[in-house]
Amino acid sequence: MSTFLHITNGDVTTQILKNLKIEGEIITWREMLCEGKTTTDVGSEDFWKIRYDFLSSAYKVTKKTFIDFTLKEYRNLCKQNQDEIVLWFDHDLFCQVNLVAVVSWLKKYRKGRKITLVQTNISDQSQSRYGFSGISKDELTVLYNNRVTLSQDDIEYADYIWQLYCSDSPLRLETVHKFNPSSPFIYLTDAINAHLRRFPSLENGLNKIENTILHTVNTSNLKNENDLIRSLLTNQKVYGFGDVQYSNKIKELKTLFSSLNPVKLSESGIKVLHNQLNYYRELRSDFSYLGGAKKYSYLYVNATDKLLKL
Rank of each mutant, 00 (worst) to 15 (best):
G36N: 05
T38W: 00
T39Q: 04
T40F: 13
D41Q: 14
D41C: 13
V42G: 00
E45M: 02
E45R: 09
D46G: 02
I50L: 11
I50Y: 08
I50Q: 06
Y52F: 15
F54R: 01
S57E: 13
Y59M: 14
K60Q: 15
V61P: 00
V61L: 10
T62Y: 12
K63H: 14
K64L: 03
K64C: 01
F66N: 07
I67M: 14
F69I: 06
T70G: 05
T70D: 12
T70S: 15
L71C: 11
K72W: 05
R75K: 14
R75E: 14
R75N: 15
L77F: 07
C78H: 05
Q82N: 14
Q82C: 10
I85E: 01
V86E: 01
W88Y: 14
F89M: 10
F89W: 10
H91G: 10
D92W: 09
L93I: 08
F94G: 00
Q96G: 10
V100F: 09
A101T: 03
L106M: 13
K108Q: 13
K108W: 04
Y109M: 08
Y109P: 08
Y109N: 13
K111P: 05
K114G: 06
I115P: 01
T116Q: 11
Q119S: 02
T120I: 08
I122H: 00
Q127L: 03
S128E: 12
I135P: 07
D138M: 09
D138V: 08
E139H: 09
E139Y: 03
T141H: 07
T141K: 12
L143R: 13
Y144I: 15
N145D: 14
N146T: 13
R147D: 07
T149K: 12
L150G: 06
L150A: 07
S151E: 07
D153Q: 12
D154I: 04
I155E: 01
D159S: 15
D159P: 05
Y160V: 04
Y160T: 05
W162T: 02
W162E: 03
